[in-house]
């Protein structure tokens, strides 16, 4: 078929099941380009604590386990596939990590960067031979250290703050930074700073109307950014009418799309707001995320003659 096919997914939060599905989507969906929109690292470490006589004990899926080291690999795979980081440790180190947030932060950084490096190696093995382009932008939840892993990747590109040329035909600008969130995540900034960041990229684009805006944060109040409203204690506001929902997207993103009317807007960040909408002439998509169930939500987009010929939200 003429034109190019892009597969876009986002917010897999450490789920190796979803990442492997993402890599396989190229062949399964006959996509020429794979784009991951950010938040690829996980949120959970499962300490596997060494015990007596070569055993390890840990909690997983609500149950306590005690297994021999020879059996550990299967569980480690299970944990990685579900989005957690298995971490072999000692009772002493575990105790330390429970008391010392800085030490825990260092361990998180270590397991996350190691995992990203492994994933990028896997991506190169799978995609390079099939000439499937792959772009992964770290999102607001991904620590800055993971960027280093991309520098040594021979195939996967991190387009953060740059202009990427998709199949030498379509310009794409990208940022994983979001507006401020209640979680004080690693890549977030005030709206005016985000606006400046976006403007700096747009100024380098030859034709914004034919470009792709790959911004992790969705446009404000667009239907792509509806999330539970939370109170000051980070608890969803609820009542007799259910959970209260509100718009949490970025006005900087929204303004840039309204102003430049790019061909396509690729967004994520808000897992529960799966949707595809038009802002003016721009198709904006947020495929949502169900990484916790090992389901890869995505969007397949067919671009032809500098237009969006068709698209399909997927659930693989």
């Amino acid at each position: 078929m003429p034109g190019i096919h892009i597969f876009f997914a986002t917010d897999i939060h450490g789920s190796e099941t979803c990442f492997r599905k993402f890599l396989n989507a190229g062949i399964a969906y006959k996509a020429d380009v794979l784009i991951m929109g950010g938040d690829m690292t996980g949120k959970l470490i499962v300490p596997l604590v060494a015990g007596a006589k070569g055993t390890f004990h840990f909690e997983w899926l609500g149950a306590a386990h005690e297994v021999m080291e020879s059996e550990l690999a299967d569980y480690e795979k299970q944990i990685r596939m579900a989005g957690g980081y298995p971490y072999r440790t000692t009772p002493e180190e575990k105790q330390l990590l429970e008391k010392d947030p800085q030490a825990l932060k260092r361990v998180f950084a270590k397991v996350m960067t190691a995992s990203v490096a492994q994933w990028l190696t896997l991506a190169e093995e799978r995609l390079k031979k099939n000439r499937i382009e792959c772009y992964i932008t770290p999102g607001n939840d991904d620590i800055l250290q993971v960027d280093e892993a991309f520098q040594s990747s021979g195939w996967v590109k991190n387009p953060e703050g740059q202009i990427a040329q998709l199949k030498d035909e379509y310009e794409m600008i990208a940022t994983g930074y979001s507006n401020l969130t209640p979680w004080n995540s690693p890549r977030e900034m005030e709206e005016d700073q985000l606006k400046e960041r976006i403007e700096a990229m747009v100024q380098k684009v030859k034709d914004p109307k034919k470009a792709i805006f790959n911004f992790h944060c969705p446009p404000f109040d667009s239907g792509l950014d509806t999330a539970p409203r939370i109170d000051r204690t980070l608890k969803p506001v609820t009542g007799i009418t259910g959970v209260e929902m509100t718009a949490v997207g970025s006005t900087a993103v929204s303004d840039s799309i309204k102003r430049y009317q790019p061909l396509l807007g690729l967004h994520g960040h808000v897992h529960e707001s799966r949707a595809a909408i038009k802002i003016g002439s721009t198709l904006c998509v947020n495929p949502g995320s169900e990484y916790s169930e090992g389901i890869l939500r995505g969007c397949l987009i067919w671009l032809e003659k500098k237009k969006v010929r068709d698209y399909l939200l997927t659930c693989g």
């Binding site: 939060h13 938040d39 949120k43 959970l44 470490i45 499962v46 300490p47 840990f58 909690e59 997983w60 306590a64 957690g84 990590l97 429970e98 947030p101 825990l104 932060k105 361990v107 998180f108 607001n140 939840d141 979001s178 969130t181 979680w183 004080n184 995540s185 690693p186 999330a227 539970p228 939370i230 980070l234 608890k235 969803p236 960040h269 897992h271």
Partner: peptide
């Protein structure tokens, strides 16, 4: 951004959506 042990079983870090 904060990391913490939420039980004796595992550690989590604060991230978007962890309400």
């Amino acid at each position: 951004m904060a990391e913490k042990a939420v039980s004796k079983g595992f550690f989590v870090r604060d991230a978007t959506g962890l309400v």
